[in-house]
Design a protein around this nucleic acid. Sequence first.
RNA 1: GCCCCCAUCGUCUAGUGGCCUAGGACACCACCCUUUCAAGGUGGCGGCACGGGUUCGAAUCCCGUUGGGGGUGCCA
Length: 481
Amino acid sequence: MSDDASSTPAPRVRIAPSPTGFFHVGGARTALYNWAIAKQQGGRFVLRIEDTDLERNQDEATQGIIDALAWLGIHHEDPVFEGPYFQSQYAEAHVAAAQRLYEEGKAYYCDLTGEQIQERAKANGKPGYDGYSRDRGLEPGPGRVLRFRVPDGGPTVVRDVIRGDVTFEHDAIEDFVLLRGNGAPMFLLANVVDDVEMRISHVIRGDEHLTNAAKQQLLWDALGHTPPVWAHVPVLVNEQRKKLSKRRDKVALEQYRDEGYLADAMVNYLMTLGWAPRQAGHDGNDEHATEIVPWAEMQAAFRLEDVTHSPAFFDLKKLAAFNGDYIRMLSVDDFVAACEPWIPDSFDRERFVAMAPHIQTRVVTLAEAPGMVDFLMTDHVAYDEASWQKAMHQPWSRGVLAETAAAYSTAEWDADTLKGALEHVATAHELKLGKAQAPIRVAVTGRSVGPPLFESLEVLGRDETIRRLDLAIAHIVQQDH
RNA sequence: GCCCCCAUCGUCUAGUGGCCUAGGACACCACCCUUUCAAGGUGGCGGCACGGGUUCGAAUCCCGUUGGGGGUGCCA
């Protein structure tokens, strides 16, 4: 880690979430991009909580952010991790910077109210603030905001690693507010001052900040510092192609975690949403090469230059597919361990473990796992009406049930034998196993679909299996009257 | 309205002037396997928004159109 002159200095990146009480999946993706850069280049990843709104549950919200990051593999204890810092604690520095800009004539006070600004805008036929107080020489005072004096003429060019050079004419940038009427610093100012203070070298964030970048770069310049490397990643959108919103869309990372999505799957999905590892060959035969990729590989291969330019649809179906893949990649032991939080206390552990390999290939999220084998954990079978109708109203249903029950009363109790016995019964009725197993399955599990039947029976045991078979027969008899 | 960004199968993407008869993945469909459902295997459907250039040659470069998106706060 020698920083000789020839090597580029290690990057200092940051994420700056506000303590809203949940972690946005879009924020998770940019966090991951930032983390990959910091890790691969021996840099630092700074967490700064932008808490200027002074929420009350701040500690809780901060812990939530740290937990969410940890879930993604961005660990607080990692030496690359720095923080959390709290923006609110730097208010003095923000105000001091504003003061300096004011004294240097780079900012000025304005006493116009929102309504007045609107009126003037209407009269001008131009929306936005018109710079009315630029040369009025107003002193600071209650209700007066401090505005940044955008330099006259010329453009500001934001050099963005992902987008290229983006040019903003100064005429199109209004004199934005630095300090509110009550003296409190605004986001644009606080954000820049903190970045300067924390020696941030790369600002990697959502595309919705691209316009802010021009204003912020102006601020970096005015404050006498070299602007950071900018990288604006495209936003995540919903099926309507609108930016993912808290109101309409499922955006809370915690929610996915609680529903049983694997962190590895989520990380993989998020990373490759808008980015793909460079393709090695040209034949494209390397299936999965740009899809399911282990973190270590992504971390090493990630390059901001390769991030896509267009918004990406956050596709739950594809996330689910990734999750299924990752679940199947788990060892059975790991799968069981991962299911732990969703397994009710009432469950028989051994039975769950015995069924685990069968559950593993059938489940998309961990949360679904218990429901798959709940019929093994109770002595009450809840019949699904549609399943019952279909399976039990065949002319042969009752006979198959009765003969199977009879055979099972003496059979060797293992899946293979159980299967053989039912096959025997099926043959006698000129039925395929697929047909004949239906009434047995419904009698025992209550449903027409589920994990492999004979393996389930093996776990359930002879007595309970026969009891359920007899119970079903009794039901049929009852319905016939 | 103004400013800015973007544009390859339905979706996520590969592709950086000839390896493209445009590759993969998800989804969908079919078949195989099969004790249901999955998983797995095989195959199929399906795309360079449009119009002009540049070039011997454009998905790739340029311009325009159209269409999406983001931003336009004393929010962050």
